[in-house]
């Protein structure tokens, strides 16, 4: 039994999520290989080779994979899949984009966003915005799975896997990369951060998010948002936490001016400690908060920043 993990990387760096996906692969058992597909990815391959439990890092270094477009990447994975009983990737936008395509091309089901490995063919996954947990068993000979990275502890980095180059697999003319607008900031990534502070519609406008930034700087936190705050244009889409945004599970989650809709809770209720700041005493967010503070965020946030 062998598992292929599709690594994720951005701008020459291995994404933190990959070490969590390798952990899921190890929970399944058998040998674990990692695939790095991209352009100029030698450094990424070296980082992946250090992940504990990885036997081989297979590298497809070609411009065709530079932007992780689903069509060429799926063709590559389909060809490699012959050697594997599982193909895994993070349940990130990259993983969700390509793995279902691979599954369909191999005529097998895809299992989305697993939370645990019960046995080599049985997995738990959230359904209905995490309000129910399904246990599913797969009878497919190839299992194509995306992994909720926050549900698996990252493997260590003392490994010494071998690195091998792969022959090029055909390009695809179905899609073409035009450009991207990526958020750049000094803060930790949302899905891996130890502390997350998120703002909702209650923030009133985008400028007011600087009230959160000050606190985030002091705590080394990532800054997130509710859908309402993103829809209103306060902050960009990559900050949305929730059922259809990012899933976070930090040690500390601070929800500010967020009511606590189930779609938002779906993205953060596995946080260890939840703090809610809201002026509405009855806001549903207080039902999941360990510590609730009722009051006006515009008074509370400056005081909190000062007292930290």
């Amino acid at each position: 039994m062998r598992t292929l993990v599709l690594a994720e990387h951005h701008e020459g760096r291995l994404a933190a999520g990959t070490a969590h996906v390798v952990a899921a692969a190890r929970a399944i058992g058998g040998e674990v290989d990692v695939l790095i597909a991209g352009e100029n990815v030698a450094g990424v391959a070296e980082a992946a080779a250090r992940l504990d439990g990885v036997s081989r890092v297979r590298v497809a270094d070609n411009a065709a994979y530079a932007h992780q477009l689903a069509e060429p990447l799926a063709d590559l994975l389909v060809q490699l899949a012959e050697d594997y009983s599982q193909v895994l990737a993070a349940a990130s936008t990259d993983g969700k984009n390509v793995l279902p395509r691979v599954a369909a091309l191999k005529d097998v089901s895809q299992i989305s966003e697993i939370l645990s490995v019960e046995s080599a063919d049985t997995f738990k996954r959230p359904i209905y915005a995490g309000n129910a947990i399904a246990t599913v068993q797969s009878s497919d000979s190839l299992k194509v799975i995306t992994v909720r990275t926050t549900a698996f502890d990252a493997v260590g980095e003392s490994g010494t896997a071998t690195i091998e180059a792969l022959a090029f697999v055909a390009d695809s003319d179905l899609s073409r990369f035009i450009g991207e607008e990526l958020a750049h900031n000094e803060r930790p990534e949302l899905s891996g951060a130890r502390v997350v502070i998120s703002g909702g519609r209650g923030m009133g406008n985008g400028d007011n998010f600087k009230l959160l930034n000050g606190i985030a700087d002091k705590l080394g936190a990532a800054v997130g948002a509710s859908r309402a705050a993103v829809d209103a244009g306060y902050v960009p889409n990559d900050m949305q936490v929730g059922q259809t945004g990012k899933i976070v599970a930090p040690d500390l989650y601070i929800a500010v001016g967020i009511s606590g809709a189930i779609q938002h809770l779906a993205g953060m209720k596995d946080s260890k400690v939840i703090v809610a700041i809201n002026k509405d005493d009855d806001a549903p967010i207080f039902q999941v908060a360990d510590y609730g503070l009722v009051g006006d965020l515009f008074e509370i946030l400056p005081e909190l920043e000062q007292k930290l």
Binding site: A132, I133, T135, Q137, S138, D140, F286
Partner: peptide
Amino acid sequence: TGGLTLLKVETPAERKGGVKV
């Protein structure tokens, strides 16, 4: 017909509300 069998559906562990400070 598909390759997956739904074995069980559970309610996730309920999160207890904490305290107001």
